[in-house]
Simulated assay, not measured.
Amino acid sequence: MDGNAEDQWLLAPAERELVMTKNRANRLGFAILLTFFRERGRFPRDETEVEVQGIAALAKQLDAPIDGEAFLTGRTAERLRGEIRVRFGFREATVADAEMLTEWLRDHIAGEVGGDPDGAHRAQRVHNGVQERLPPTTRERLDALLRPEKSGDAESAVEDAQGEAAGSAPAVLLKLRGSPGRPSLASMQDELAKLELIRGIDLPAGLFDRASPRDLERCRQRVSVEVPRDLRRHPDAARLTWLAAFVYLRARSLTDDLVDLLIETVHQISARAERKVERELLEDLKRVSGKQNLLFNLADATLAEPDGVVRDVVFPVVGEQTLRDLVKEWKATGSTYRITLRTVIRNSYQGALPPHGADLAGRA
Protein backbone atom coordinates (compact mmCIF):
# COMPACT_ATOMS: atom_id res chain seq x y z
CA MET A 1 0.00 0.00 0.00
CA ASP A 2 1.05 3.62 -0.52
CA GLY A 3 1.90 6.14 2.16
CA ASN A 4 3.35 5.53 5.58
CA ALA A 5 3.47 1.77 6.15
CA GLU A 6 2.90 1.95 9.89
CA ASP A 7 -0.16 4.20 9.60
CA GLN A 8 -1.75 1.94 6.99
CA TRP A 9 -1.91 -0.96 9.42
CA LEU A 10 -2.69 1.08 12.51
CA LEU A 11 -6.13 0.39 13.95
CA ALA A 12 -8.12 3.34 15.25
CA PRO A 13 -9.63 2.89 18.72
CA ALA A 14 -13.12 2.32 17.26
CA GLU A 15 -11.76 -0.16 14.74
CA ARG A 16 -9.88 -2.11 17.39
CA GLU A 17 -13.01 -2.22 19.51
CA LEU A 18 -14.94 -3.63 16.55
CA VAL A 19 -12.26 -6.24 15.85
CA MET A 20 -12.26 -7.39 19.45
CA THR A 21 -15.99 -8.25 19.21
CA LYS A 22 -15.16 -11.02 16.71
CA ASN A 23 -14.30 -14.61 17.45
CA ARG A 24 -10.69 -14.80 18.58
CA ALA A 25 -9.78 -17.04 15.66
CA ASN A 26 -11.16 -14.49 13.18
CA ARG A 27 -9.83 -11.27 14.69
CA LEU A 28 -6.60 -11.05 12.75
CA GLY A 29 -8.28 -11.98 9.45
CA PHE A 30 -11.04 -9.42 10.04
CA ALA A 31 -8.44 -6.73 10.85
CA ILE A 32 -6.60 -7.53 7.61
CA LEU A 33 -9.77 -7.13 5.54
CA LEU A 34 -10.77 -3.97 7.41
CA THR A 35 -7.48 -2.10 7.02
CA PHE A 36 -6.96 -3.23 3.42
CA PHE A 37 -10.45 -2.02 2.41
CA ARG A 38 -9.99 1.23 4.32
CA GLU A 39 -6.85 2.05 2.36
CA ARG A 40 -7.75 0.76 -1.14
CA GLY A 41 -11.52 0.70 -1.31
CA ARG A 42 -11.55 -3.01 -2.14
CA PHE A 43 -10.66 -6.37 -0.60
CA PRO A 44 -7.47 -8.31 -1.39
CA ARG A 45 -7.86 -10.78 -4.25
CA ASP A 46 -5.68 -13.33 -2.48
CA GLU A 47 -3.18 -13.53 0.38
CA THR A 48 -0.24 -12.50 -1.83
CA GLU A 49 -1.60 -8.94 -1.89
CA VAL A 50 -1.30 -8.61 1.88
CA GLU A 51 2.14 -7.53 3.10
CA VAL A 52 3.84 -9.73 5.68
CA GLN A 53 4.89 -6.74 7.78
CA GLY A 54 1.28 -5.54 7.80
CA ILE A 55 0.03 -8.83 9.19
CA ALA A 56 2.77 -8.71 11.85
CA ALA A 57 1.81 -5.14 12.80
CA LEU A 58 -1.86 -6.07 13.20
CA ALA A 59 -1.03 -9.21 15.17
CA LYS A 60 1.06 -7.15 17.57
CA GLN A 61 -1.77 -4.66 18.16
CA LEU A 62 -4.27 -7.46 18.77
CA ASP A 63 -1.89 -9.70 20.68
CA ALA A 64 -2.94 -12.49 18.31
CA PRO A 65 -0.85 -15.37 16.98
CA ILE A 66 0.13 -15.50 13.30
CA ASP A 67 -0.73 -18.77 11.60
CA GLY A 68 -1.62 -19.99 8.14
CA GLU A 69 -5.34 -19.25 8.67
CA ALA A 70 -4.91 -15.46 9.04
CA PHE A 71 -6.35 -14.82 5.58
CA LEU A 72 -10.07 -15.60 5.80
CA THR A 73 -11.98 -17.42 3.06
CA GLY A 74 -15.38 -19.02 2.54
CA ARG A 75 -18.70 -18.01 4.08
CA THR A 76 -17.10 -16.44 7.14
CA ALA A 77 -15.07 -14.11 4.95
CA GLU A 78 -18.15 -13.15 2.90
CA ARG A 79 -20.10 -12.31 6.04
CA LEU A 80 -17.30 -10.17 7.45
CA ARG A 81 -16.77 -8.44 4.11
CA GLY A 82 -20.45 -7.48 4.04
CA GLU A 83 -20.11 -5.92 7.48
CA ILE A 84 -17.06 -3.91 6.35
CA ARG A 85 -18.86 -2.66 3.24
CA VAL A 86 -21.73 -1.38 5.34
CA ARG A 87 -19.31 0.36 7.69
CA PHE A 88 -17.74 2.32 4.84
CA GLY A 89 -20.99 2.96 2.93
CA PHE A 90 -20.45 0.44 0.12
CA ARG A 91 -22.55 -2.38 -1.30
CA GLU A 92 -21.93 -5.15 -3.78
CA ALA A 93 -22.43 -4.22 -7.43
CA THR A 94 -25.44 -5.67 -9.22
CA VAL A 95 -26.24 -6.33 -12.86
CA ALA A 96 -28.34 -3.16 -12.89
CA ASP A 97 -25.35 -1.19 -11.62
CA ALA A 98 -23.22 -2.59 -14.43
CA GLU A 99 -25.83 -1.60 -17.02
CA MET A 100 -26.10 1.92 -15.61
CA LEU A 101 -22.33 2.28 -15.62
CA THR A 102 -22.11 1.06 -19.20
CA GLU A 103 -24.74 3.56 -20.32
CA TRP A 104 -23.03 6.43 -18.48
CA LEU A 105 -19.63 5.57 -19.97
CA ARG A 106 -21.17 5.39 -23.43
CA ASP A 107 -22.94 8.75 -23.15
CA HIS A 108 -20.27 10.76 -21.33
CA ILE A 109 -16.83 9.21 -21.66
CA ALA A 110 -16.76 7.41 -24.99
CA GLY A 111 -17.81 10.55 -26.84
CA GLU A 112 -15.11 12.57 -25.12
CA VAL A 113 -12.30 10.32 -26.33
CA GLY A 114 -13.85 9.63 -29.71
CA GLY A 115 -14.28 5.95 -29.05
CA ASP A 116 -18.04 5.62 -29.28
CA PRO A 117 -18.76 3.03 -32.00
CA ASP A 118 -22.39 4.14 -32.04
CA GLY A 119 -21.79 7.90 -32.12
CA ALA A 120 -24.62 8.74 -34.50
CA HIS A 121 -27.19 7.00 -32.29
CA ARG A 122 -25.78 8.64 -29.20
CA ALA A 123 -25.97 12.10 -30.80
CA GLN A 124 -29.53 11.44 -31.85
CA ARG A 125 -30.48 10.53 -28.30
CA VAL A 126 -28.89 13.72 -27.01
CA HIS A 127 -30.62 15.85 -29.64
CA ASN A 128 -33.99 14.29 -28.94
CA GLY A 129 -33.52 14.77 -25.21
CA VAL A 130 -32.74 18.48 -25.62
CA GLN A 131 -35.64 19.02 -28.03
CA GLU A 132 -38.09 17.41 -25.64
CA ARG A 133 -37.04 19.79 -22.86
CA LEU A 134 -37.42 22.92 -25.00
CA PRO A 135 -40.85 24.61 -24.71
CA PRO A 136 -42.52 25.50 -28.03
CA THR A 137 -41.94 29.23 -27.49
CA THR A 138 -38.22 28.66 -26.92
CA ARG A 139 -37.99 26.55 -30.08
CA GLU A 140 -39.56 29.37 -32.05
CA ARG A 141 -37.15 31.94 -30.59
CA LEU A 142 -34.18 29.75 -31.46
CA ASP A 143 -35.32 29.32 -35.05
CA ALA A 144 -35.92 33.08 -35.24
CA LEU A 145 -32.15 33.51 -34.98
CA LEU A 146 -31.91 32.08 -38.49
CA ARG A 147 -34.24 34.72 -39.90
CA PRO A 148 -33.51 38.41 -40.54
CA GLU A 149 -34.59 41.08 -38.12
CA LYS A 150 -38.10 42.37 -38.61
CA SER A 151 -37.75 45.66 -40.45
CA GLY A 152 -40.55 45.43 -42.99
CA ASP A 153 -41.42 42.50 -45.21
CA ALA A 154 -39.91 43.82 -48.43
CA GLU A 155 -36.72 45.06 -46.78
CA SER A 156 -36.31 41.85 -44.80
CA ALA A 157 -36.66 39.76 -47.93
CA VAL A 158 -33.92 41.79 -49.63
CA GLU A 159 -31.63 41.50 -46.61
CA ASP A 160 -32.23 37.75 -46.39
CA ALA A 161 -31.50 37.26 -50.08
CA GLN A 162 -28.30 39.32 -49.86
CA GLY A 163 -27.20 37.44 -46.78
CA GLU A 164 -27.77 34.05 -48.37
CA ALA A 165 -26.02 35.13 -51.57
CA ALA A 166 -22.98 36.25 -49.62
CA GLY A 167 -23.00 33.09 -47.52
CA SER A 168 -23.39 35.05 -44.29
CA ALA A 169 -25.86 34.74 -41.44
CA PRO A 170 -29.06 36.74 -41.19
CA ALA A 171 -28.98 39.91 -39.19
CA VAL A 172 -30.01 38.38 -35.83
CA LEU A 173 -27.41 35.63 -35.78
CA LEU A 174 -24.82 37.94 -37.29
CA LYS A 175 -25.39 40.33 -34.41
CA LEU A 176 -24.78 37.58 -31.88
CA ARG A 177 -21.69 36.31 -33.70
CA GLY A 178 -20.03 39.73 -33.79
CA SER A 179 -17.24 40.62 -31.41
CA PRO A 180 -17.24 43.78 -29.28
CA GLY A 181 -15.68 46.90 -30.75
CA ARG A 182 -13.35 49.34 -29.11
CA PRO A 183 -14.07 49.99 -25.42
CA SER A 184 -16.72 52.67 -25.16
CA LEU A 185 -20.18 53.30 -23.78
CA ALA A 186 -21.64 52.45 -27.20
CA SER A 187 -19.82 49.08 -27.25
CA MET A 188 -21.14 48.25 -23.81
CA GLN A 189 -24.67 49.10 -24.89
CA ASP A 190 -24.33 46.86 -27.96
CA GLU A 191 -23.10 43.92 -25.86
CA LEU A 192 -25.90 44.46 -23.34
CA ALA A 193 -28.41 44.37 -26.19
CA LYS A 194 -26.98 41.02 -27.33
CA LEU A 195 -27.16 39.62 -23.81
CA GLU A 196 -30.75 40.83 -23.45
CA LEU A 197 -31.64 39.13 -26.74
CA ILE A 198 -30.12 35.85 -25.61
CA ARG A 199 -31.80 35.95 -22.22
CA GLY A 200 -35.10 36.55 -23.98
CA ILE A 201 -34.78 33.13 -25.63
CA ASP A 202 -35.28 31.68 -22.13
CA LEU A 203 -33.49 28.33 -22.19
CA PRO A 204 -34.71 25.92 -19.48
CA ALA A 205 -32.54 25.81 -16.37
CA GLY A 206 -30.13 22.89 -16.28
CA LEU A 207 -30.63 22.10 -19.98
CA PHE A 208 -26.95 21.21 -20.46
CA ASP A 209 -25.98 20.17 -16.94
CA ARG A 210 -25.12 16.66 -18.14
CA ALA A 211 -23.54 17.70 -21.44
CA SER A 212 -19.78 17.56 -21.87
CA PRO A 213 -17.91 20.82 -22.63
CA ARG A 214 -16.51 19.20 -25.77
CA ASP A 215 -19.98 18.45 -27.17
CA LEU A 216 -21.17 21.97 -26.40
CA GLU A 217 -18.16 23.48 -28.14
CA ARG A 218 -18.82 21.36 -31.23
CA CYS A 219 -22.37 22.68 -31.38
CA ARG A 220 -21.16 26.26 -30.97
CA GLN A 221 -18.62 25.89 -33.76
CA ARG A 222 -21.25 24.38 -36.05
CA VAL A 223 -23.54 27.40 -35.62
CA SER A 224 -20.60 29.84 -35.83
CA VAL A 225 -19.40 28.69 -39.24
CA GLU A 226 -22.41 27.21 -41.03
CA VAL A 227 -24.61 29.51 -43.10
CA PRO A 228 -28.26 29.83 -42.01
CA ARG A 229 -29.53 28.27 -45.22
CA ASP A 230 -27.69 25.04 -44.37
CA LEU A 231 -28.63 25.16 -40.71
CA ARG A 232 -32.31 25.34 -41.59
CA ARG A 233 -32.00 22.13 -43.64
CA HIS A 234 -30.96 19.99 -40.66
CA PRO A 235 -33.52 17.94 -38.69
CA ASP A 236 -35.34 19.89 -36.01
CA ALA A 237 -33.75 18.05 -33.06
CA ALA A 238 -30.18 18.61 -34.26
CA ARG A 239 -30.75 22.22 -35.34
CA LEU A 240 -32.42 23.22 -32.08
CA THR A 241 -29.75 21.50 -29.99
CA TRP A 242 -26.93 23.28 -31.83
CA LEU A 243 -28.65 26.67 -31.54
CA ALA A 244 -29.42 26.14 -27.86
CA ALA A 245 -25.80 25.22 -27.13
CA PHE A 246 -24.60 28.27 -29.08
CA VAL A 247 -26.89 30.55 -27.08
CA TYR A 248 -25.88 28.88 -23.81
CA LEU A 249 -22.16 29.45 -24.41
CA ARG A 250 -22.63 32.88 -26.02
CA ALA A 251 -24.33 34.15 -22.87
CA ARG A 252 -21.20 33.27 -20.91
CA SER A 253 -18.80 34.88 -23.38
CA LEU A 254 -20.92 38.03 -23.56
CA THR A 255 -20.74 38.35 -19.79
CA ASP A 256 -16.95 38.10 -19.98
CA ASP A 257 -16.86 40.66 -22.81
CA LEU A 258 -18.95 43.10 -20.77
CA VAL A 259 -16.61 42.80 -17.80
CA ASP A 260 -13.59 43.47 -20.05
CA LEU A 261 -15.32 46.43 -21.70
CA LEU A 262 -16.25 47.88 -18.32
CA ILE A 263 -12.67 47.63 -17.08
CA GLU A 264 -11.23 49.17 -20.25
CA THR A 265 -13.84 51.95 -20.27
CA VAL A 266 -13.11 52.81 -16.64
CA HIS A 267 -9.40 52.94 -17.45
CA GLN A 268 -10.05 55.28 -20.36
CA ILE A 269 -12.23 57.54 -18.23
CA SER A 270 -9.55 57.61 -15.54
CA ALA A 271 -6.84 58.46 -18.09
CA ARG A 272 -8.89 61.31 -19.57
CA ALA A 273 -9.64 62.62 -16.09
CA GLU A 274 -5.96 62.54 -15.18
CA ARG A 275 -5.01 64.47 -18.32
CA LYS A 276 -7.68 67.05 -17.60
CA VAL A 277 -6.55 67.48 -14.02
CA GLU A 278 -2.95 67.82 -15.14
CA ARG A 279 -3.89 70.57 -17.59
CA GLU A 280 -5.87 72.40 -14.93
CA LEU A 281 -3.05 72.07 -12.44
CA LEU A 282 -0.56 73.40 -14.95
CA GLU A 283 -2.79 76.38 -15.73
CA ASP A 284 -3.36 76.95 -12.05
CA LEU A 285 0.36 76.74 -11.41
CA LYS A 286 0.92 79.42 -14.00
CA ARG A 287 -1.75 81.67 -12.44
CA VAL A 288 -0.52 81.13 -8.90
CA SER A 289 3.05 81.81 -9.93
CA GLY A 290 2.04 85.23 -11.22
CA LYS A 291 0.34 86.01 -7.95
CA GLN A 292 3.37 84.85 -6.01
CA ASN A 293 5.60 87.23 -7.95
CA LEU A 294 3.33 90.13 -7.05
CA LEU A 295 3.32 89.12 -3.39
CA PHE A 296 7.09 88.76 -3.33
CA ASN A 297 7.51 92.17 -4.93
CA LEU A 298 5.10 93.64 -2.40
CA ALA A 299 7.02 92.09 0.47
CA ASP A 300 10.31 93.38 -0.95
CA ALA A 301 8.96 96.91 -1.29
CA THR A 302 7.52 96.78 2.20
CA LEU A 303 10.88 95.87 3.69
CA ALA A 304 12.55 98.64 1.67
CA GLU A 305 10.40 101.29 3.40
CA PRO A 306 9.46 99.75 6.77
CA ASP A 307 8.66 102.95 8.65
CA GLY A 308 5.34 104.75 8.83
CA VAL A 309 2.18 103.05 7.72
CA VAL A 310 3.95 99.72 6.98
CA ARG A 311 5.25 99.37 10.53
CA ASP A 312 1.90 100.39 12.01
CA VAL A 313 -0.39 98.38 9.70
CA VAL A 314 1.48 95.52 7.91
CA PHE A 315 3.92 94.28 10.55
CA PRO A 316 1.21 93.60 13.16
CA VAL A 317 -0.43 91.22 10.65
CA VAL A 318 2.68 89.71 9.01
CA GLY A 319 5.84 89.98 11.06
CA GLU A 320 8.89 91.67 9.64
CA GLN A 321 10.99 88.51 9.98
CA THR A 322 8.37 86.48 8.09
CA LEU A 323 8.52 88.92 5.21
CA ARG A 324 12.31 88.79 5.21
CA ASP A 325 12.23 84.97 5.07
CA LEU A 326 9.72 85.09 2.22
CA VAL A 327 11.83 87.45 0.15
CA LYS A 328 14.94 85.39 0.87
CA GLU A 329 13.23 82.22 -0.36
CA TRP A 330 11.95 83.90 -3.50
CA LYS A 331 15.40 85.23 -4.42
CA ALA A 332 16.95 81.81 -3.80
CA THR A 333 14.44 79.72 -5.77
CA GLY A 334 12.93 82.03 -8.36
CA SER A 335 9.54 81.46 -9.96
CA THR A 336 8.10 77.98 -9.31
CA TYR A 337 6.41 77.90 -12.65
CA ARG A 338 9.51 78.94 -14.59
CA ILE A 339 11.56 76.26 -12.86
CA THR A 340 8.93 73.59 -13.62
CA LEU A 341 8.61 74.76 -17.21
CA ARG A 342 12.38 74.70 -17.76
CA THR A 343 12.54 71.17 -16.34
CA VAL A 344 9.84 69.92 -18.71
CA ILE A 345 11.43 71.62 -21.71
CA ARG A 346 14.88 70.26 -20.82
CA ASN A 347 13.51 66.74 -20.48
CA SER A 348 11.71 67.05 -23.79
CA TYR A 349 14.87 68.15 -25.55
CA GLN A 350 16.83 65.33 -23.96
CA GLY A 351 14.32 62.84 -25.35
CA ALA A 352 14.51 64.36 -28.81
CA LEU A 353 18.30 64.70 -29.06
CA PRO A 354 20.35 61.76 -30.41
CA PRO A 355 22.61 59.80 -28.06
CA HIS A 356 26.13 61.05 -27.50
CA GLY A 357 28.28 60.50 -30.56
CA ALA A 358 25.41 59.75 -32.93
CA ASP A 359 25.55 60.97 -36.53
CA LEU A 360 22.97 63.77 -36.84
CA ALA A 361 23.34 63.86 -40.59
CA GLY A 362 22.67 60.14 -40.78
CA ARG A 363 19.55 60.53 -38.65
CA ALA A 364 18.29 63.28 -40.89
Rank of each mutant, 00 (worst) to 15 (best):
V327L: 11
T343F: 01
Q321I: 07
G308Q: 04
D312A: 15
D312T: 15
V310E: 03
V310R: 04
Y337V: 02
D325S: 12
A301F: 02
D307P: 03
E320N: 05
E329Y: 12
D307Q: 13
K331L: 10
D312W: 06
A304N: 10
A301N: 03
E305C: 04
K328S: 13
R338M: 01
V309G: 00
P306F: 13
R342E: 07
F315L: 14
T336H: 02
A301D: 02
E329G: 07
V344E: 00
A301K: 06
Q321L: 08
E320V: 10
V344M: 09
V314L: 15
T302L: 15
T340M: 04
G308D: 08
S335L: 00
L303T: 07
R342D: 09
L323C: 03
L303E: 07
L341P: 02
S335I: 01
R338A: 08
K328R: 14
D312L: 14
L341W: 05
A301S: 05
D325L: 10
L341E: 09
V344Q: 06
L341Y: 06
F315I: 11
L341N: 04
L323F: 12
G319V: 09
A304H: 09
R324Q: 14
K328Y: 07
V313S: 06
K328V: 06
E320D: 04
V317F: 13
R342K: 09
G308T: 06
R311V: 10
K328N: 11
L303V: 07
L326E: 00
E305R: 14
K331Y: 09
S335Q: 00
L303W: 02
G334P: 04
D325Y: 07
E329L: 14
V317R: 15
A301Q: 07
L323N: 03
V310S: 10
G308C: 10
G308F: 09
A301G: 04
T340K: 02
R324K: 15
G319Y: 06
V313R: 08
W330V: 03
P306D: 11
D325V: 06
D307V: 06
P316D: 05
E329K: 12
E329A: 12
G334D: 02
T340P: 00
T340S: 01
D307M: 08
E329F: 13
V309T: 13
